[in-house]
Computed example of a mutant assay.
Amino acid sequence: MKIEVTVHIRPPWEPPSIPAEPPQLVRPQQLNITKTEELLPPVLSPADIQKFLGIGQKQSYELLNSDAFHVSRVGRRMLVSRAVFIEWLEGRSED
Score class of each variant (00 low, 15 high):
Pro11Ile: 10
Ala47Tyr: 05
Gln57Val: 13
Ile49Thr: 01
Glu90Asn: 14
Pro28Lys: 08
Glu4Gly: 05
Pro22Val: 03
Ser81Gly: 04
Glu14Ile: 13
Asp67Ile: 02
Val80Pro: 00
Gly91Arg: 06
Gln59Tyr: 09
Phe69Val: 08
Lys51Ser: 12
Pro16Trp: 08
Trp88Thr: 00
Lys58Arg: 13
Glu4Met: 08
Thr36Ile: 11
Met1Gly: 13
Glu87Phe: 02
Glu38Pro: 01
Ser45Thr: 14
Gln59Thr: 15
Gly91Pro: 05
Gln24Trp: 04
Ser72Tyr: 04
Leu40Pro: 06
Pro41Arg: 02
Asp95Ser: 14
Lys58Asp: 05
Pro46Asn: 09
Lys58Gly: 10
His8Asp: 00
Pro42Tyr: 11
Pro15Ser: 12
Glu37Phe: 11
Val71Ser: 07
Leu63Trp: 09
Arg76Asn: 10
Asp67Leu: 06
Ser45Met: 08
Glu4Val: 09
Ala68Gly: 12
Gln30Arg: 15
Pro22Thr: 02
Asp95Trp: 09
Leu53Asn: 04
Phe85Gly: 02
Asn65Val: 12
Gln24Val: 13
Pro11Asp: 15
Arg73Cys: 10
Val26Tyr: 02
Lys51Tyr: 03
Gly75Met: 11
Pro41Cys: 10
Trp88Pro: 00
Gln59Ile: 08
Gln59Trp: 06
Leu64Arg: 03
Lys2Cys: 02
Arg82Trp: 02
His8Leu: 11
Gln30Glu: 11
Ile3Trp: 01
Arg82Asn: 04
Trp88Asn: 01
Ile9Cys: 09
Phe69Gln: 06
Leu40Glu: 00
Leu31Glu: 07
Asn32Gln: 14
Leu53Lys: 06
Gln29His: 07
Val43Lys: 10
Glu37Ser: 11
His8Glu: 01
